[in-house]
Design a protein around this nucleic acid. Sequence first.
DNA 1: GTGATTGCAAATTTTTTGCAAGATA
DNA 2: TATCTTGCAAAAAATTTGCAATCAC
Lengths: 135, 135
Amino acid sequence: MLALKEKIKEAGLKTTPQRIAVYAAMRKLGHACVDRVAEEVAVSFPSMTIATIYNVLESFVNSGLLVRRFSSNNKMYFDVNVYEHAHFYDTADNSYEDFHDPELVRMVMEYISTRKFDNFNIKSVDIQLVGNKIA
Amino acid sequence: MLALKEKIKEAGLKTTPQRIAVYAAMRKLGHACVDRVAEEVAVSFPSMTIATIYNVLESFVNSGLLVRRFSSNNKMYFDVNVYEHAHFYDTADNSYEDFHDPELVRMVMEYISTRKFDNFNIKSVDIQLVGNKIA
DNA sequence: GTGATTGCAAATTTTTTGCAAGATA
DNA sequence: TATCTTGCAAAAAATTTGCAATCAC
């Protein structure tokens, strides 16, 4: 529990019980949409409102504690791992799974760097392996 | 205009004026969200309702005339180019631009194919170069 | 003619907003 | 204590639904 507070403080945010609860939920979930976070938070903090969850998630994104993910179901998703990495994306349930493969990211970044894009400033590269979990 | 009808028929769909208008709009726009399509369609077909636009877009996705794109602003986006290709994604205005580079896609696919994923069936790979257009 | 498609209106889902009350540093 | 954060309630934005009327083949 201390590590959670530390991370929030480190990010330059005040450590409120609500923020701790949301960050703990994200630590547990890894990737999640808002209602999934709400569901998880409700276990230990049922009085927390959905507006606060939105507030907290946004403050986390703005301070670099979470990153938003790309989705194809018109909902916000967040990732607790903020370093650049690839993902599996399951189109059946819109879930993510990390694909930890620094070599792949490095290879793509290196390839990109050989190209000149004078009309676009690339900040990151997002790679998703799209498909479905095998039952 | 004939090519549009042909494509729709080819996809196994009845060629209604509404579908032609939506497909023409997508051909012009390349990538678009629903309200952008509606705006474009309204020029030539102002009586068309938003529900029909959703219907048509969905029928197009189901029949392979369009593909959905991943976005980070909780809205549906569609791509008129259905073959696999990478994109620039501008986080400032949530716009896409094609990054036609078959070599990149091939390289990543080849790299992926050297890995065994026995719990995930990969259908496609989505690569987005995330950043901002330079003014 | 028949089944698919459209239009409409209402509902649902997801996200945002404004502001008063409360908590943190 | 001053400022930031939370809770609430309402609104806005985006998508979906049901059904009757219309259209394409």
